[in-house]
């Protein structure tokens, strides 16, 4: 690895680490992706396979980058945890960044100690890398089209799925009843969620074992459509809590609280 490449790689690693640790989401996402999938593998690749040697092909080199990066993430995490560390954002950032920097160091060291290695034939041959107009049409255009299509249908599909499944659920629930007080009653925390203000008003009616009405409550949901309140019910009765909506006569949601043992 030549010093320029090593410097760029190390610099990118440090910038990514800083973005992960201190940056907003817009920076931490690319920084995190680089640290998780690219930089460690790239550095280890260079440390293992010196540039200019033909012992590994482009395809293999390309695939090894994310594979080795993930190996650093997983095996580094295991080692860190085994050593008593906690796996949080900082520690994982350090695992990836340190792994990358160490590999860069090894690559630079190996380059210095193996200076006799032949130069890359690709470079010696002065291979043309410029993007020609023909190549732009043949390669870049269709791939860009494909990428745009994938991104477009991905976003659209996400929105469609969310729209289809993300429907409002109206629920009535109670936490398991508390302890019985000396008066033979017990508190029950009741919550109604997902209430639509337009479908109201809502009324909650509590009845006893024999069907007699124990209490009645007008429910006014908050701006999120939620309501919560504490009811006191007799411990020795099987209590039914019915939620009525608008002028409906049938209960909209129902809870049943069994008598205490």
């Amino acid at each position: 690895m030549n010093p320029v490449r090593a410097g760029v790689l190390a610099g990118l690693t440090v910038v990514s680490a800083l973005a992960v640790e201190f940056g907003p989401l817009a920076l931490s996402v690319p920084g995190g992706l680089l640290l998780a999938f690219v930089l460690p593998g790239l550095a280890i690749n260079d440390a293992l396979f010196r540039p200019g040697r033909r012992d590994i092909g482009v395809v293999e080199r390309t695939i090894l980058v994310p594979a080795l990066s993930l190996a650093v993430l997983v095996l580094g995490g295991l080692l860190l945890w085994g050593a008593g560390g906690n796996l949080n954002r900082t520690s994982w950032m350090l695992v990836c960044a340190m792994g990358t920097l160490i590999a860069i160091g090894v690559a630079v060291y190996r380059t210095h100690t193996g200076a006799t290695v032949a130069a890359s034939p690709g470079k010696a041959g002065g291979e043309r890398r410029a993007v020609s107009k023909q190549r732009l049409i043949r390669d870049v255009l269709p791939l860009a089209l494909a990428a745009v299509m994938l991104a477009g249908v991905g976003i659209w599909s996400f929105a469609d799925s969310e729209q289809t499944y993300d429907i409002a659920v109206t629920s009535l629930s109670a936490a398991p009843p508390g302890a019985v007080d000396p008066a033979g009653n017990r508190p029950v925390q009741v919550t109604a969620a997902g209430l639509s203000a337009s479908a109201g008003p809502y009324t909650m009616v509590v009845t006893g074992t024999s069907g007699e009405e124990l209490s009645r409550h007008d429910i006014t949901p908050d701006t999120d459509g939620d309501w919560t309140g504490r009811l006191t019910v007799p411990a020795d009765e099987r209590v039914t809590v019915n939620l009525f909506r608008g002028g409906e006569t049938a209960a909209f949601r129902t809870l049943i609280i069994a008598a205490a043992a």
Binding site: V169, L172, P176, A258
Partner: peptide
Amino acid sequence: DQVNSISRLYDNGTVRIYQMGPS
């Protein structure tokens, strides 16, 4: 719903959750 010892603690109109045994 007919068992005295079972409580219905959650109801969203489609899914209900019952507590088994006296509460």
